[in-house]
Nucleic acid binder design. Structure first.
Lengths: 152, 152
DNA sequence: TTGAATGCAAAAAATTTGCATATTG
DNA sequence: CAATATGCAAATTTTTTGCATTCAA
């Protein structure tokens, strides 16, 4: 048999007595394909690719919230307006959000682990830095516009 | 003369040909007093303390955006719903947001500096970690509910 | 069959905007 | 006095919710 890419989704759902629907599969597939996406991004992608069944806004929100609970996607505020969701397989990633051009890059989380360890040791707070987002300026924007983040 | 706590505000505004209004002073004062606050928190605090002049919702939003541009307050998504603003004097702080109880603690940013340095060295991305927010579970919540962040 | 999930439409939140009026410098 | 800022109301944008119907198991 061919388990397919949604096998873990089916498993997680069944374990809770929930159901594997095509909508949920499609939402997860899109998040995986896009790497990171807001609910609106997901909706747009689904509409763009057509396909069946069409997925309603509310279903996207509910699906994303569920996928988060199941631990299959993580939520991070990359965009100032809306939260972004991204697949969890990509574990231990840092999201670098450029305030200059808006680009979102990823970087290995090594150093973040040290940060979390340090915080834990000193405060007892167990921080989840596996999908941390850092804001700043990317290399390109720094060379073209050395000034600090400010918009005209 | 007595410069007062708003001296830097007045200076920053004048430097740009903008005006020092009592509303802007009140908004800044509240953010300083609360430590960190959403626009709604600010509004509520202003209403609670009465005072004159009353400040309108839109004015609070505009004032916060301006104060951010002036570099007097920083914006960080502490709450999932709305952005929080906090005074910048408190430079180099880490915000520890507990997913269990919602409490927001602060911690020195030392280790964050290392993280930023590491990211910069390896990717050329200049991250601003002076007001970084980390999500996780505080010491108290970890002892009472050892499970990973999940809500029933 | 039957409880869970979806779609649809309406409601809530949160934030932004236009414009007449009030204020600051 | 002139340009900026405010208040107010309306419009946007983003997310949530109620409920009848459909569907997965």
């Amino acid at each position: 048999m061919t388990p397919g890419p949604s096998a873990p989704l089916g498993r997680a759902l069944r374990a809770r007595g929930l159901r594997l629907t095509p909508q949920r599969e499609r939402v997860l597939a899109v998040v995986r394909r896009l790497g990171h996406a807001t609910p609106d991004d997901v909706l747009a992608a689904l509409r763009a690719e057509g396909g069946t069944p069409a997925v309603d806004t509310s279903t996207v929100y509910r699906a994303l919230a569920l996928l988060e609970e199941l631990g299959l996607v993580a939520r991070t505020p990359l965009d100032r307006r809306a939260d972004s969701f991204h697949p969890v397989e990509h574990g231990g990633h840092l999201h670098l959000v450029c305030d200059g051009c808006g680009a979102v890059a990823e970087a290995p989380a090594r150093a973040a682990g040290d940060l979390a360890a340090d915080v834990l040791r000193r405060t007892g707070f167990a921080a989840d830095v596996t999908h941390l987002a850092l804001r700043g300026r990317c290399a390109a924007c720094r060379t073209t516009t050395p000034e600090p983040p400010e918009r005209p």
